[in-house]
Amino acid sequence: MRSEQEVNRAIDTYADTVRRICMLHLKSASDTEDIFQEVFLKYALSAASFTSEEHEKAWIIRVTVNKCKDLLKSVFRKRTIPMEEGMELPQEGREDHGEVLEAVLSLPAKYKNVVYLHYYEGYSAVEISRILQKNVNTVYALLSRARRMLQERLGGEDEDAE
């Protein structure tokens, strides 16, 4: 079991990452808080040893994605508060980048993770395939289709496609 200092450091370091992944999948603040608690409690109790910060971050991302999937699959999940009510998205951010966020959030669930991990976190398709435990060709295909859908909606160029 990890020390309280280790857990607090991990929360300070990875809270934003967990929050962004939660935003991709969940529509309520209480679900997000549940995921925060589960992810960092698992981290506190885990005996996994990490060789680097990148390794640790990849572990946090994988656990968060899996916890979100589990929560969405849960038949006991009753609480469904609309995101607009529960989430405290920065008003400024929503005004400036609302269209982009809405475009990403409107993608089918299977594309959201790869888009976020590739375009925001900067992971390659191979790295994403390891984190999400998917076939690398599947990741390439998902990225390609997601790119096309976002371009249709947002326009602009994609340097990856160049």
């Binding site: 951010g93 990403v104 375009y119 947002l154 990856d160």
Partner: peptide, 14 residues
């Protein structure tokens, strides 16, 4: 697109 997405997600913080 990458810049747009990064700018949008940068606004999201815990």
């Amino acid at each position: 697109m990458r810049s747009k997405i990064q700018a949008a997600f940068d606004q999201i913080r815990a």
